[in-house]
Structure formats: C-alpha cells, structure tokens
C-alpha cells in the first residue's frame, strides 16, 4: 500500500509541529522518520495512523483519501513507544484483541482466532509466553508482543513510534536486525520514527530527515550520509566539524586567512564549512589547508581522536578529528590538516 502526504500542516497553539509536509512512501518500503525531539516526526506518524488530525493537508493510502476515516477504519498497525499492552490481559489475549473486536459479520470463530494468534506468536518467536501478563515480560519481549498485536489485524500499513526507544543498547541492536528481517518476510509498507541516526541508517530503505516541522531531506541511508542536502542534515547525521568561513574570490577564508581549498562555485558571503571527522587528513606542519597544534590525544579501538587547536581563527577554535592508530600523534605537535571531502552551506541567521 502506498502512502501519500500532501501539504500537511499541524499547529499546537503557536508551535508548528508540521509545516507544509509532503511525502510519498512506496509500496513495501521500510521508511525511517529521523529527527530531534520536537521535529514533528511523531505527530506525522500519528496523523497517518488517525490518532491525530492535521489543520490542513491530505493523507491518502493507495490513492484513497483517508482523513475522513477513523483510526480503526484505516487498518493501520500501530506500535507505541511504551508498548501500550493491555495490562489486564495475557499475551495471548493482547494479540487476539484486534480479532475479537471485529464486527460479528466478519469476526473469525474461536478456533481460527487461536490459530492466527499462535501463528503471530511464532512469528515473533514468543509463543511460550502466551499465558503471561505484560508486567512479567522484559522490554524487548513486550515490544515484540506489541508488534504481533499490531500485525494481527493484517494491517495495510505498519507504523512504529520510537519502537526501540525504551530499550537498552544491546536489546536495541538485536531488535533492529530482527525488525529488518521481519519486514523482508512480511513486506508490509512500514514507517518508523526514531531520533537515533544509527538506527535509521541501519534499518530503513529510505530515511526522511525532519527538523522543526519540515522535511530536510529524503534519501537512502547512503545518500543522506554522503550527500547531505542541508547544513542541518550534515550536522545531525554523522559527526561533523563545523567552521565559520567566508567565501570570497572563489576561495574560502577562515578568520580572514585564505584556506587552501576551492569554494566549488559556492556564492560569496558568510558560510559554514562542514567536514566529517574521519575526512580530515593530518600531515606535517605547513602542508595542508589548516594549521594547528595537538592538545590532547585519546585512543578508541581502531582510531585515535585528537583535539587540535586551530591557528589563524579569530577565536580559539578546537576541533576533534579521527586519525588511524598507526599515525603517531602527541600533545604539543604542530600539524596541518587537509580535508579530503567537505561541504559548504550558507550560514544561517
């Protein structure tokens, strides 16, 4: 089932949670809505589910406008961040709920319901927990039961709100891989919300990066990482070094001093230079675009991270760069830095 969102706007008082958002989701896609808190990603998900309503705009499933339909009529599976399992029901009854509340005319008989619940519990590999209550389960188990419950109604679309947000790091990682393989198995169009870039890049086919109620970029994980469309995306995904620069005469200047890099046709004026930490190459003093002195070196597994104070900047600027372990670095060394790759964006404000 395809999903299309057009000109969606939603305000809470003066705060624009969604500001003219357009989005198309292809059939069978696994899409991540990624953004910091307050970026509108959960609001967008809830509007698609029918748990919230926009001030204006359209939402359609497979070309059919669904805004006039209630959440129940949309046939959407929704998985809540805090699971929202029915606490007074067993795992079995939780999963069976969606089947038991169907109108009598289309409701399955008891045997068929039992068979379907069993099938779903097998799918999430938790059939041995069917008689337990939610408070007897671990967080990861609860999340998988919540997913089984959402799948019970054979949803046209699966929506997950921060599905792993409340879990610890190790369980998160396991569930991520599990969710991806589950999606390959059942292939239902799915959207999940997350503020964790690693999660979005690792699980999704496509990532939608949101900020302040707007979509900043839509692309594959590779695209949003390698070709960030805006300064926000560059800063939010992956770790970046950001330097305030000025573009003048086809060159780039930092604190009035020309840097040995090209402006790539960028328009003159105040700008921001973005460089990935690992894209900064360290060389002997006098050989690169930027000069600086090493202040501090720490080692992390295969890499070492150096804090380098830049010379020439108007204010004292210290940046962190990643270098391979085999390159010898000591505090006090004078070094030069040459960005292998970099991007320039207009300075905001």
């Amino acid at each position: 089932m395809t999903i299309e969102v057009k000109n969606l706007t939603k305000k809470f008082g003066d705060f624009a949670a969604l500001d003219n958002v357009d989005l198309k989701v292809a059939d069978g896609e696994l899409l991540a809505l990624l953004g910091p808190s307050g970026s509108g990603k959960t609001t967008l998900l809830r509007i698609i589910a029918g748990l919230d309503w926009p001030d204006s705009g359209e939402v359609s499933f497979g070309g059919e406008n669904v805004l006039s339909r209630s959440a129940g009529e949309r046939h959407v599976g929704f998985v809540f961040q805090h699971y929202a399992l029915f606490r007074h029901m067993t795992v079995f009854e939780n999963v069976a709920f969606g089947l038991r509340v169907q109108p009598r005319a289309i409701r399955k008989d008891e045997a068929a319901i039992r068979a379907r619940v069993k099938e779903l519990l097998d799918l999430v590999q938790l059939d041995w927990l069917s008689d337990r209550y939610p408070n007897q389960l671990s967080g990861g188990q609860r999340q998988r039961i919540a997913l089984a419950r959402a799948l019970a109604i054979e949803p046209r679309i699966l929506l997950l709100d921060e599905p792993f947000g409340a879990l610890d790091a190790k369980v998160r990682k396991e569930l991520r891989q599990w969710l991806r393989s589950l999606h390959q198995e059942i292939h239902v169009t799915s959207i999940f919300v997350t503020h964790d870039q690693e999660e979005a890049l690792e699980v999704a086919n496509r990532v939608v990066v949101m900020d302040k109620g707007r979509i900043e970029q839509v692309g594959t994980p590779g695209e949003v990482y390698d070709n960030p469309a805006t300064a926000f995306v560059h800063g939010f995904i992956g770790e970046s070094i950001v330097l305030p620069v000025e573009v003048r005469d086809g060159g780039v200047q930092l604190g009035g001093k020309a840097l040995n890099i090209a402006a790539n046709g960028y328009a003159p004026g105040a700008a921001k230079l973005f460089i990935r930490r690992h894209d900064m190459q360290i060389g002997p003093a006098g050989s690169g675009a930027l000069e600086g002195s090493v202040q501090h070196v720490r080692t992390f597994g295969p890499i070492q991270r150096a804090e380098v104070a830049l010379c020439g900047a108007a204010e004292k600027t210290v940046i962190e760069i990643d270098a391979p372990r085999d390159r010898e670095l000591h505090a006090g060394d004078a070094v030069s830095l040459q960005p292998r790759r970099y991007r320039i964006f207009a300075a905001q404000e």
Binding site: L51, A84, L85, F97, R149
Partner: peptide
C-alpha cells in the same frame, strides 16, 4: 495509550471502554 491502541486495532468507543478502560 492503551485506549489509542484499542482504537487503532479497530475497537469501537464502547468496546474500548468495557474491554480496556473499565478493567
């Protein structure tokens, strides 16, 4: 949240009240 879950699973308002809220 439990009420929202019930509604998204297709329960009517009354079903949600008697099966989820009241218990």
């Amino acid at each position: 949240q439990e009420e929202e879950a019930a509604i998204s699973l297709g329960a009517s308002g009354l079903q949600t009240f008697f099966r989820v809220t009241l218990p």
